[in-house]
Design a protein around this nucleic acid. Structure first.
Ligand SMILES: [Mn+2]
Ligand SMILES: [Mn+2]
Ligand SMILES: [Mn+2]
Ligand SMILES: [Mn+2]
Lengths: 156, 156
DNA sequence: AGATTATTTTAGCACAAGCTATATTTTGTA
DNA sequence: TACAAAATATAGCTTGTGCTAAAATAATCT
């Protein structure tokens, strides 16, 4: 079932039946957390990328964001409108994009977290290519406490 | 910037400037992977949940799925239509939902992976409530190699 | 400066996933 | 068996994120 591997025949004994299950409400809250993570994640990836581009290229242009995100420039432009509405960035017609203070703050937090997740996976023994791909998705679901645990592992 | 914490004043020296950056293409591929993970993740959570409900309650009803997912029953019903179209489940009007063979296979893989991610976070030292919430999102972005690394850590 | 190229904008489309309100059907009980 | 309650379905809406094609603007080069 993993994208390209053989199904495990290791039929692990179903310890389920009697396992004390979480409450229905707690389960629902976890799914709600995941959905809210997703509602935030595009903002997170964009502000991090905008900050990177400004540092590397002096400015953040839609065409460069599009290349790094693997989407069209039209998608970038429309998303930037949403981010502007939400107060993460500013921009003028035909000009590049800038971060608001709030956007810059988010970018800093998000970059640190992203780097920590990547270092953590590498230290765990995950091959670099997989670690980099996985980190791009995982990072948005890491709570402060999990981040702290990863930091302890990396530093300890 | 984390939902409820103070911003780090620890201005970590920006080692960025000269850091060998990944290629634009590799970065784009990671973002593409993340998007394809997201396109699959609702199917993953649903089949796992349907399998659980059949085991626990004898059948998987929309109203119970809705409660555990924290969405309305209408949303569940519409999503089930999509899953049916994609070959994960079957269902008849006013009847409960069943997994296809393909759906059952996915459910088994997804449950094992979910349990491994949770055990891993717990062993890492993450408090249970956070571990359970984070695992619900993280699980969908775990490649087979990262899963293997987590397994080594948990078992070793 | 003028022509070409690059970039951004606009218009219009699709799909997934959420919602409320209302109708219909099934289920459980008096 | 009829009635009430519970569950499901249908209609219609919103938002976010993707796309292509074409028009408008900015930047570059001879
Ligand atoms: Mn990311
Ligand atoms: Mn799961
Ligand atoms: Mn999940
Ligand atoms: Mn995700």
């Amino acid at each position: 079932m993993p994208p390209a591997s053989k199904a495990k025949s290791k039929k692990t004994k179903k310890k389920a039946a009697t396992a004390a299950r979480r409450s229905v409400e707690a389960t629902a809250r976890s799914h709600e957390r995941t959905r809210s993570d997703h509602a935030r994640e595009i903002a997170e990836d964009y502000v991090e990328l905008i900050d990177d581009l400004i540092a590397e290229c002096g400015e953040a242009r839609a065409v460069d964001m599009a290349k790094r995100l693997g989407v069209t420039q039209v998608t970038v432009t429309k998303t930037i409108e949403r981010l502007k509405k939400d107060g993460w960035v500013t921009s003028e017609p035909y000009r590049s994009v800038f971060l608001t203070d709030k956007g810059k703050e988010l970018a800093d937090y998000v970059r640190d977290r992203h780097e920590m997740v990547l270092e953590f996976l590498l230290k765990l023994g995950v091959p670099r290519a997989d670690a980099e791909a996985d980190a791009e998705g995982i990072e948005h679901h890491i709570s402060p406490r999990t981040l702290a645990a990863m930091k302890r592992y990396v530093e300890g």
